[in-house]
Amino acid sequence: MEAAGAAALPRLCALLLPFLAVATCLDVPSHGCYWTGCQSKWFGVCAARYYLNSQSDDCDGLCMGSKSPPCLPLHTHFYCCKPGIPKVTNKCGHCKIKLDFGKEFICCSDCSEPTIMDKNTKLGYCKSGADLTMQLKPQETFHWVAGPWMMCSSPCDGGIRYRDVACYGSLDDNTIKHYPVDDASCSADEMPAKQEGCNQQSCGDPETTQAMNPKRSGMSGWLVALIVFLGLGAIGGIAFTSYTYYRRRASGSSGFVYVMMEAYY
């Protein structure tokens, strides 16, 4: 029994050696990420408060040569990252890769892809080792916008007219004046009326009738103007014809000879 136990001890030490002797390729930083030394693919661990992100035999090309010896079979390097709360900056505006959390953007200071572990606290990290940052969005306000009233549906005895009412949003930095949004974003209690009554006067009222039919009270103005124009044209035509006839008579070489004979009784 003692001989069997003595023979099993070297085997146990050989199995535990990868876990006890961990050669790191980079020093463990106080924040960000780092590569571990060669560890078992199934039992690799990170330092306290660091989380395993990925693995690679050569640290994605960072642990070559004298920095780290080649890993044994079934062993690999692990990439460990320490999560933290993002710092508030204004660096996310120019980054194409960023996460939208409604009132703020989450990004990495080098514009790489961020990893968020808790959406409530925004706890996360950047795999590149850059700082996790957060940029607050400009304050957005919503208000109702009412269009002009349309024509009344009836000239008298009560009608209804309508208008368009929609909800619009705007930003406090004046980058965009206003833009349409869903009506649920505006307060329903402050919504202007979309319709109202109009032309409540009775159709039997003489003043209403006069206003509705102003042409029936007398001869229309255009008809009077037409009669006057035709009359002036007729007078002008007669005068022109008479003048032409007179000129022809006065300038002609022949004429009438009037012989007056005195009667004798």
Score class of each variant (00 low, 15 high):
104 E>G: 01
53 N>A: 15
57 D>C: 05
231 G>D: 01
189 D>S: 14
222 W>N: 09
112 S>D: 11
168 Y>V: 15
252 G>T: 10
84 G>T: 10
168 Y>W: 14
202 S>W: 02
66 S>P: 10
222 W>R: 11
28 V>T: 12
105 F>D: 10
162 Y>I: 10
265 Y>N: 13
247 R>D: 00
91 K>Y: 07
122 K>T: 12
245 Y>D: 04
243 Y>D: 04
28 V>M: 08
116 I>W: 06
124 G>C: 05
26 L>E: 08
261 M>N: 08
133 T>H: 09
121 T>C: 02
75 H>A: 03
35 W>N: 03
5 G>T: 02
240 F>Q: 12
43 F>C: 05
25 C>R: 04
6 A>T: 10
141 T>N: 15
9 L>M: 01
78 F>P: 01
81 C>A: 07
240 F>Y: 14
120 N>E: 12
180 P>F: 11
28 V>R: 13
217 S>K: 08
50 Y>N: 12
247 R>T: 04
188 A>G: 03
254 S>M: 04
189 D>Y: 08
108 C>F: 10
134 M>A: 13
176 I>T: 14
259 V>T: 10
80 C>E: 00
249 R>M: 05
221 G>A: 12
117 M>T: 13
149 W>C: 13
157 D>T: 05
54 S>G: 07
135 Q>D: 13
110 D>W: 01
236 G>R: 05
234 A>G: 11
256 F>M: 04
63 C>W: 01
231 G>K: 03
79 Y>C: 03
64 M>V: 14
206 P>N: 01
62 L>Q: 10
16 L>C: 08
122 K>E: 09
15 L>H: 02
78 F>E: 02
159 G>F: 05
25 C>L: 09
168 Y>A: 15
169 G>L: 09
37 G>M: 06
182 D>K: 07
177 K>A: 10
260 M>V: 12
198 C>A: 05
222 W>S: 13
64 M>A: 08
186 C>I: 00
29 P>K: 06
158 G>T: 14
46 C>A: 04
162 Y>N: 14
26 L>G: 08
77 H>R: 15
203 C>E: 02
123 L>C: 00
25 C>H: 01
157 D>N: 15
157 D>A: 07
163 R>A: 12
237 G>A: 08
161 R>G: 06
262 E>D: 09
67 K>R: 15
141 T>S: 15
171 L>S: 06
189 D>H: 07
235 I>G: 11
171 L>A: 00
138 P>I: 09
192 P>D: 11
156 C>N: 07
180 P>D: 07
83 P>E: 03
76 T>C: 05
199 N>A: 03
23 A>L: 12
55 Q>W: 14
